Computed example of a mutant assay.
Amino acid sequence: MAESREHTFTGTKGLNTAREWPNDRPRYLALLIHGYGEHIGRYEYVADRLVRHGAAVYGIDHMGHGKSTGDRVLVENFEDVVTDVHTVEERARADHPGVPVVVIGHSMGGMIAARYAQRYGDGLAALVLSGPVIGEWEIVPALLAYEEPPDTPIDPATLSRDLSVGTAYAADPLVWHGPFKRPTLEAFATTLETIAKGGTLGSLPTLWVHGADDELVPLRGSRPGVEAIKGTYLTERIYEGARHEVFNETNKDEVLDDVTSFVDRAL
């Protein structure tokens, strides 16, 4: 696997931990944006593939996630998370002036990436949305119907057909295994509405990848969200039989081949 290094910086709500997988002469910079309850350390395989493809890779643990500070999984405003990701982009650009930037977001990270593209898309070369929480995510209104959201743990088997992925997830001390927090659910609802009203992605090359058997973020909910923001250059890849984490699926190399081929076309 590609070597990596960590650093910390003061984000919008506290100290964030960022990780970099360096490349001395990158063709592009890849910003990885992780999903709800997890951390950027789960993306080693993705980062390794991207480094070998010519990228310098950067990512952070969002506030309240992984090694970053804050109440666990508490996000009151996802605009703050977008701002923190932008701080990482600014560092990446300072390290490698003039190198194009590609944003890759998974699940909640796909939602953050979509909003990021609405705010900062003029400076991006490409966008990849993996199993994005966008459009209608039925778990949000379902849990907001309760004054205190019930504990509905993720079934690790829904992550991938490779069951070792779920086993590692369940044993990972940096993964949150508790219930959703109401302010975070409210922030999800607000951000989904903001994205829906935020306009299209224009000419930004966008790749949408999704597992056809994704039970955590069902395809049927994400599709109207993608349709609402898509610009003039959207590539769609739906993988039959795949579950939520397509970057950790049994066909992950096919998925990452699609991602790197898309980036080549976009660049």
Results as ranks from 00 to 15, higher is better:
Ala125Val: 03
Arg91His: 05
Val81Asp: 11
Ala142Phe: 11
Ser68Leu: 02
Ser107Tyr: 07
Val57Ile: 04
Val85Pro: 02
Ile134Pro: 03
Arg27Lys: 10
Ala145Gly: 10
Val140Trp: 07
Pro97Thr: 00
Ala30Cys: 10
Val103Met: 08
Thr152Leu: 15
Val81Ser: 11
Pro100Met: 00
Arg25Lys: 14
Val128Cys: 11
Ala126Ser: 12
Pro141Gln: 04
Glu89Gln: 15
Pro149Arg: 06
Leu32Phe: 08
Thr158Met: 11
Ala114Lys: 05
Pro132Asn: 02
Glu136His: 12
Ala157Leu: 11
Glu20Leu: 10
Trp137Ala: 12
Arg91Ser: 00
His53Asn: 13
Pro153Leu: 08
Glu90Trp: 00
Asp95Leu: 15
Arg25Pro: 04
Val85Phe: 05
Gly110Gln: 08
Ile154Ser: 08
Ser160Phe: 10
His106Tyr: 06
Ser130Gly: 12
Asp151Ala: 12
Tyr28Ala: 11
Asn77Lys: 13
Arg49Lys: 11
Arg25Asp: 13
Thr69Glu: 13
Tyr45Phe: 15
Pro150Val: 02
Gly105Cys: 08
Gly59Ser: 12
Pro156His: 06
Trp21Ala: 04
Gly64Ile: 04
Thr83His: 12
Tyr120Ser: 03
Ala114Cys: 07
Arg19Met: 08
Ile104Val: 13
Arg161Tyr: 09
Ala142Lys: 14
Tyr28Cys: 07
Gln118Lys: 01
Pro149Gln: 03
Val140Lys: 06
Val73Trp: 06
Glu148Tyr: 12
His34Arg: 12
His96Val: 05
Val133Leu: 05
Gly98Val: 00
Asp80Leu: 14
Thr83Gly: 10
Arg25Ala: 15
Val57Cys: 01
Ser160Arg: 09
Ile60Asn: 11
Gln118Ile: 09
Val81Met: 08
Pro97Arg: 01
Val133Lys: 01
Pro150Lys: 03
Glu76Arg: 15
Pro132Ser: 00
Glu136Ile: 13
Thr87Val: 11
Ile154Asp: 02
Val51Lys: 03
Ser107Arg: 10
Arg19Gln: 05
His106Phe: 10
Asp80Val: 14
Pro153Glu: 09
His65Ser: 08
Arg91Lys: 15
Gly37Glu: 05
Glu44Trp: 10
Asp95Trp: 00
Asp24His: 11
Glu38Gly: 03
Pro153Cys: 07
His53Leu: 12
Asp61Glu: 01
Gly123Ala: 08
Pro153Phe: 09
Val81Tyr: 05
Trp21Lys: 02
Tyr45Trp: 15
Leu129Thr: 04
Ala94Tyr: 03
Gly98Glu: 00
Asp24Glu: 14
Tyr120Glu: 05
His106Pro: 06
Tyr45Val: 10
Val51Ile: 09
Tyr43Pro: 13
Ala92Gly: 05
Leu31Lys: 02
Ala117Trp: 04
Pro156Asp: 00
Pro141Asn: 07
Ile40Ala: 09
Trp137Arg: 02
Ala145Trp: 11
His65Thr: 05
Tyr146His: 13
Pro153Gly: 05
His53Val: 03
Leu124Met: 07
Lys67Leu: 13
Thr87Pro: 06
Val140Arg: 07
Gly64Leu: 02
Arg91Cys: 00
Val46Asp: 04
Ile33Lys: 01
Asn23Gly: 06
His39Thr: 02
Ile139Cys: 00
Ala157Cys: 03
Gly59Met: 11
Glu38Trp: 07
Tyr36Pro: 07
Glu20Pro: 05
Met63Gln: 14
Tyr120His: 15
Tyr28Glu: 03
Gly109Phe: 09
